[in-house]
Write a protein that binds this DNA or RNA. Sequence first.
DNA 1: AAGGGAGCCTGGCGGC
DNA 2: TGCCGCCAGGCTCCCT
Length: 299
Amino acid sequence: MPELPEVETVRRGLQPFLEGATIVTVKARRPDLRFPLPEAFARRLTGRRINQLWRRAKYLLADLDSGETLIMHLGMSGSFRVHAIGEAGGASAVAPGRFHHPRSGAQVHDHISFDLAVGKARHEVVYNDPRRFGFMDLAPTERLSQSRHLANLGFEPIGNQMSAEAIAERFAGRIAPIKAALLDQRLIAGLGNIYVCEALWQARISPLRAAGDMVARNRRPKAAAERLALAIRQILEEAIAAGGSSLRDHKLVDGSLGYFQHSFRVYDREGQECARCGGRIGRVVQSGRSTFYCPKCQR
DNA sequence: AAGGGAGCCTGGCGGC
DNA sequence: TGCCGCCAGGCTCCCT
């Protein structure tokens, strides 16, 4: 589910509860998510202080005072909820319903819970992930960039590294469709299906064009690459400001919803009218994933 | 080497 | 109403 804006939204929501907090207890209700949890997962976290919660691409990273970093990925359907412990609205904030475990109060797919303490305040942070495509891992903070999850990531699509030059450098010579290249986390890290579709629409670029087509013979970015760099940055920043896109699963840590889905111009709008040119939004399948675009004004 | 497809899971939705 | 197939925001492995 979550692409960069959703992960960043989650990070901002968790930050005030996690940073500076001590992990009092860790409850893992199963030994694995997508992958087995790392050896002695709970023991390596318990009693540790969280120094910093940051993000790389779609990864949430919590630096611990033990010299390790907790690496978290939400997969397609992962989400975090925070609620206060021992206060009105605390445990009772867990909505009753068919996903309710009769005994523990946890909901089905609440796979991992952390009890956190900052001073006298206590919070429970619960990770829920129905499809279990998410995962958690631990790696030494000093060698984090060499960890197997982060080692091969491309540049961040927001911030200083993002530029038409960076796109040109990564895309030069590639014959794969630009849609596929933008989804390739080894080139640019953080985009997913929604924001790639939206950015290509904004930049008026056909998803079917070859990625290498963004680059002129002299290796300089073409005008299209400039438009694309601008569009990606713009879309992501707007989406972050909107709290991300809530389709099925994405929720903010307080349970509220993002609203960027109301700003989609092409994603999941097959057959509808293009807001720019009045053409009809089409859908094609590229490397097994739906691409939405306007064939009339995206060239 | 790069590109494409299958597989991992569960849940929601549309169609019959 | 009920069942079935299809589809979903990601990533990794394997094949060509």
